[in-house]
Design a protein around this nucleic acid. Structure first.
Lengths: 337, 337
DNA sequence: AAGTCTCTCGTAAACGTTTGCATAGTTAAA
DNA sequence: TTTAACTATGCAAACGTTTACGAGAGACTT
């Protein structure tokens, strides 16, 4: 049995009032007398009235919805970020739309285009690499659409951003490798065009320059395809003989475990390892992984709070414009004593 | 510089046509002549026209959006499910709203209420335990709102469902423990009221009955709070002296690793372990975890496809009404040879 | 007693889109 | 030539909500 929806009109007819009065009563307008207000609210409750969001959205030109665009959701970092975003959205009575770009810039651009239609009031995005640039983000920004970037930033788009201290955390992590006796630390990363890869690489390079200025940087770049990368990493290890590895991406660190298992290499005896990761279970790896952990939930929360300031047209101070939340190093067995 | 939005009216005025003609031209109506149709489309492209979804949604009574409600997104199983759902939604040109219940039945009920307002055209939900029952889901169903349950099912709500073969996969897993010489296998689970806990427990009990009918079942139930559960699990191990463990929840298996590390117990020598998990990294645990892996992505995909059949009012055959996608056992080191 | 205020409510327009119906012009059929 | 049918387009209503404006009634001021 399908009931026809209960609208403001249903209530109005039931109580012999006009729809205007009902509407006002429901939002506690002072123009409506207390008894009428109560009658309306009572009726709304009884009938299970829910305001139609398309109607109010059309009228108000807003949707009480924000969009979140990330490369993937299977990654723990992103799922924690989403959780942080969701908590803030909830607190603001907003809803959350999710878009997965799967590292496809074409999809990303399509999704962004789709947002210019009233479906969302703001966008939080961690971009995928786009060789053609991010003009579509700037176009979105120019229309006044609230936009905040996080994690993977883009210099050319001038909006508020939230990220972690990629460069300095990487610098510290690599220094740690040297302190533990590493002679030839290598960098393991993904797409070298990504903001996170670039900034983390620059931390590695700085540490290298300070500790071993004469050494050529050892840089491995994975494609993201496990089978291909495994072969490549194996070849890289044999050719360049690093004795320590700095993982700028969780997947690369896990790949090293796999290669070591297959080839009988030992961690940390043959390869010391420290890596960015937000996977809690890495403390149970064999050996446990010394990790650089990003405050993912907080990054999501801060980015969302920033977005709501933009949406609500609150003033954003210069200091807030670029928020850097520091990562923490969690010691474990993949480094020597 | 904020531009005013470009609507159908903008195009109409620019071309000297009525909004009706423009609207029809944009949706390839045969009523409009080919040249006019082209002119309109060209203008729409130039102006970057995007149809306002609130307006069309209000008119059509639909939103091209589905809602997904899960307890959390940090869990790999759920994030994979979401990915599967998203892929189907994309293919249908639908958008995805996400709601995290955090195991709070009050939130869940609130969220469900919120959906009766035109924001979504359907709901995919993995419920949280609600001691007061799921009347709100039945109410939603009775209004004709498309609804599909997955993973955590509810008997009292008669809608299409998708899940894995919890009982038989658990039965097989426990049989495996016996085959590998276990004498006293115990069950590790979460909330005993959950569908997944109950069905998996029943698989454990069946295997126990067949292999060791005289033995009292050993059942440990975690709360979900790590600190509390760690103490409790430790006490459980000491008191009941199991020699093998069947993890009905990933978090419980990881907890065992932690307890073993702290107390110096060995896996699999002291405790053999097999557990449900969808965390790919468990193959690198110390020792690697023998896993029951659910086809999470496919569960999401199937559930979404089912939901779209309901939304599009396609016939759903009895065989589709309850879809069971089998889990796979992935052998590793946490079982004896 | 007339004017002014305040309180409470209703009328109607607007948000942008879709669509039934009307209309004007053209073509085909009788 | 008249009529019927078809083509291409416009008019206007509708979806459900919000809100500017106005109106009627009562209270108060001068």
């Amino acid at each position: 049995m399908i009931m026809q929806p209960v609208t403001i009109k249903t209530i109005a007819e039931k109580l012999g009032l006009s729809i205007a009065t009902v509407s006002r009563a429901l939002k506690d307008s002072h123009e409506i007398s207390a008894p009428t207000r109560e009658r309306v609210k009572q009726a709304a409750l009884e009938l299970g009235y829910q305001p139609n969001v398309n109607a109010s959205g059309l009228r108000a030109g807003s949707s009480k919805t924000i969009a979140v665009m990330v490369p993937e959701v299977e990654n723990h970092f992103f799922s924690q970020v989403i959780s942080g975003i969701e908590s803030v959205a909830r607190a603001n009575d907003f809803h959350v739309l999710i878009y997965l770009t799967h590292e496809d810039p074409v999809k990303e651009e399509e999704f962004v285009q789709l947002l210019r239609n009233g479906r969302a009031d703001g966008l939080l995005i961690s971009v995928t690499h786009n060789p053609n640039g991010y003009a579509y983000l700037n176009r979105l920004r120019e229309t006044g659409f609230p936009l905040v970037l996080f994690d993977r930033l883009v210099e050319e788009v001038d909006v508020p951003v939230v990220a972690t201290n990629n460069e300095s955390a990487s610098y510290e992590a690599c220094n740690l490798l040297f302190q533990r006796g590493a002679a030839r630390p290598a960098f393991l990363g993904l797409d070298p065009n990504l903001y996170i890869t670039k900034t983390r690489l620059s931390g590695y390079l700085r540490a290298l320059k300070e500790n071993r200025p004469e050494m050529e940087p050892l840089i491995f770049t994975g494609s993201g395809q496990p089978e291909k990368d495994r072969e490549a990493l194996q070849g890289f290890l044999e050719q360049y003989r690093p004795d320590a590895l700095f993982g700028a991406a969780e997947s690369m660190a896990l790949l090293l475990y796999e290669v070591c298992r297959r080839k009988g290499y030992r961690i940390p005896e043959d390869y010391q390892l420290i890596s960015f990761t937000n996977l809690g279970a890495v403390t149970f790896l064999n050996p446990s992984l010394t990790s650089i952990v990003q405050p993912a939930f907080e990054i999501g929360r801060s980015a969302a709070e920033l977005l709501f300031k933009v949406i609500k047209k609150k003033r954003i101070y210069a200091a807030e414009q670029k928020q850097i939340l520091p990562s923490a190093i969690r010691m474990a067995e993949s480094l020597k004593a």
